[in-house]
Design a protein around this nucleic acid. Structure first.
Lengths: 221, 221
DNA sequence: CCCTTGGCTTGATCTCGATCAAGTCCAAAA
DNA sequence: TTTTGGACTTGATCGAGATCAAGCCAAGGG
């Protein structure tokens, strides 16, 4: 967001985001030159954005530089509204672009004050969205082993790190979730077992003990 | 939703969704047996769901049977809340599952009446989510040619079917969006050109004329 | 004007994961 | 108890797309 100091600033109204809160919100217009970063992954998410002209790409990066673009945003589209304090992806201008920005807090506070639970409803929805974004990265850019490792860690997280991970779903389900075949899932699990990162608990193959979450996390890349 | 008539029904309160509207909403509990469909893609979306116990998978199907699971939903998770009148994916129970359901209209009406624009804010967010779901399907299950065809049609749609499609982004951008390499994008475009489905307008390769949207649409799936 | 540079295309080869194909292991039914 | 069938694993082979590499073309700078 180094750009912001250079960007042209003006006020206007009558558009979608501005209208949302009945005109109570300040909104400003900024311009970004082609290729400039609008915000980076992990930065504070103080603003929501709506495109007036141009195009914006939002994406995530893996540590080795592989990139997965989530969306291209075009005039009228909103992006950058976050649940948490920080952005979950990077956004930069594909071409010369002008955007309307407004304080996220204004937006959220107006909602919170006017309707109890609106924020939490929105949170439920954006949680799905957040998950979708992680998953697009996985589907677009990760190897089979990385996908399976990520899957195990996700299930482990969501089931509150039980001693034994009891998967409710079949290998086919997992495969369809991860965008691979069931044989590939099976092979990946066998590799992880052979390398001592997990072992099966009992006769059934649905009960898994994660023996090394750190190494799994490294594999997940 | 044939199941619903067989499902156990009872009323309760005190949980998340119920609390959202300050207790004004009716909510009912239903149980589904393992493998049963909760709702199908394209069905009317009259209810929102929250899982009490069990697990639910939401997925889309391609016409040839390929399946892409969007998410596994676990206790506490909400799913099935839609913008439009119909569900964008199928949901069924992975194991014996009980869910709380409530009329979507109640939820939406309460929001609309209490806060102008809340519905449209939510719509902006869920539009992103909807896009993410389409994209996960593409990333997880489509071939390179299908991805590029889908990309061209998406851009054509969003730019209101101009005579000449002027892409603002590079081949690398497109590749990262589609989860392939830039060479693969280039090859796919060449194939589509050779088959007469499109041609390039002028010396630059960013200006594309779609000559047969119908055939592109067939390729896409 | 020539030279560089970045974006794109095209060709040759390689490889990861898909596909095809057995074979194993329970669990439920008989 | 045996039988049956579904879920899973493992092996052999194939192929779509990645990777490596060369070359084209238009824009920009000397």
């Amino acid at each position: 967001m180094l750009v912001r100091t250079n960007a042209a600033i003006c006020h206007s109204d009558g558009d979608q985001l501005h209208a949302l809160a009945g005109g109570q919100l300040l909104s400003s217009e900024f311009k970004y030159r082609r290729g400039m970063e609008i915000f980076g992954e992990g930065e504070e998410a103080d603003y929501a954005y709506q495109i007036l002209s141009g195009a914006v790409r939002t994406y995530k990066l893996l540590s080795d530089g592989r990139r997965q673009i989530n969306s291209f945003h075009l005039p009228g589209d909103m992006f950058g509204l976050e649940n948490g304090a920080s952005h979950r992806f990077t956004a930069d201008a594909v071409v010369e672009t002008s955007v309307r920005i407004m304080k996220r807090n204004s937006l959220v506070n107006v909602m919170a004050s006017r309707m109890t639970g609106a924020g939490s409803l929105l949170r439920l929805v954006t949680r799905n969205l957040e998950h979708a974004e992680m998953h697009m990265l996985l589907l677009g850019r990760k190897t089979a082993l990385e996908r399976v490792a990520a899957f195990l860690l996700e299930m482990d997280d969501r089931l509150m790190h039980p001693g034994v991970l009891v998967l409710p779903m079949s290998r086919r389900d997992i495969a369809d979730y991860l965008g691979v075949t069931l044989e590939t899932v099976s092979r990946a699990l066998s590799i992880l077992k052979d390398e001592g990162l997990l072992h099966f608990d009992g006769p059934t193959q649905r009960r898994i003990v994660l023996r090394d979450r750190v190494k799994l996390g490294q594999l997940e890349a």
